[in-house]
Design a protein around this nucleic acid. Structure first.
Lengths: 156, 156
DNA sequence: ACATAAAACTTTAAGCTTGAAATATCATAC
DNA sequence: GTATGATATTTCAAGCTTAAAGTTTTATGT
């Protein structure tokens, strides 16, 4: 639900609903901008970037299931994205000796170089897009979101 | 980029990147949960819910272009979702006398009733999922996100 | 009036996304 | 060692999403 500048609900318990609406709108706004720039500047997509970002942090590689858990998306989804990255030579699958069900997925050398370039631009964009958020607010917001995550992960 | 509990970047200007990562992860987490519940409880989807929520707030109807601007999605996207809602009898298109390019889209009576039911459940879910966020934090976070939106809308 | 541009919307192709079903491999219990 | 179940991954159908191109209608300039 992406509500906007029109009349907002009021009453008990509406504060959290309003928070959710604002949170969703903010992330969609930024996401749309990033998607557009990734397309225009690097002819890639956000899901591809996400996968490569995850792999960049794991030079030894990741299992498909690790990837999907980490990225909060379904298994089948990751399969398709990795397929495309493999066909472009940015990612490689390596069957393991131990367990033939699994395969370690990692960035190729080309993928690593490519990602480093894009990631640098990406960080600059975020700095620009969130530039009006003061450093202090950024840290405070981050703290609140971190505690949200802790509570979430700790729920029954 | 949905980074997680692993080592986070540090250095100048990394605060905003970290904020973005947390923001995106929070919204994706909640979004995934809502999507699952909408499917299980009401056999519907988040995009359908979004469209109906927008229309619910505009009993006189909305233009397709208003809908796509409001929901932050593309024109063609809204066409498909509305098509399906129309075929299910939840939404109706009404050609206007004045401008034959446009059509006013509005909820049918059935659509209105259906949405009211789902929205009530939805609000409860948000209260539950964000329950651990204190009312005070919720208001403060909302305030920060609101000022983000103002700055965003006012950029050159 | 006529051409040209602008606006509202739809269509299309490619890719993303999910949940469920299918496949293949491994682990466990007799 | 064989059946049974658990794991890891892929495949599939349906729906979502975008950008770009196409259609229809309206507005504008001359």
């Amino acid at each position: 639900m992406v509500a906007g500048p029109l009349p907002m609900p009021s009453g008990p318990g509406k504060d959290r609903l309003r928070l959710w609406i604002r949170l969703l709108r903010a992330s969609r706004t930024i996401e749309a901008e990033l998607r557009e720039r990734l397309k225009k500047e690097f002819d890639t997509t956000l899901p591809r970037f996400d996968v490569m970002a995850a792999l960049y942090r794991a030079p030894e590689g990741m299992l498909m299931s690790d990837l999907s858990r980490f990225l909060l998306v379904s298994n089948g989804n990751v399969t398709g994205i990795v397929d495309r990255l493999v066909s472009e030579g940015l990612v490689a699958r390596a069957r393991r000796n131990g367990d033939r069900r699994t395969s370690m997925v990692r960035l190729t050398e080309e993928g690593t170089k490519s990602f480093a370039t894009i990631a640098a631009a990406h960080e600059g964009w975020i700095g620009e897009l969130l530039g009006k958020v003061s450093e202090e607010d950024a840290r405070r917001l981050t703290g609140m979101l971190t505690s949200f995550r802790s509570n979430w992960e700790g729920r029954e």
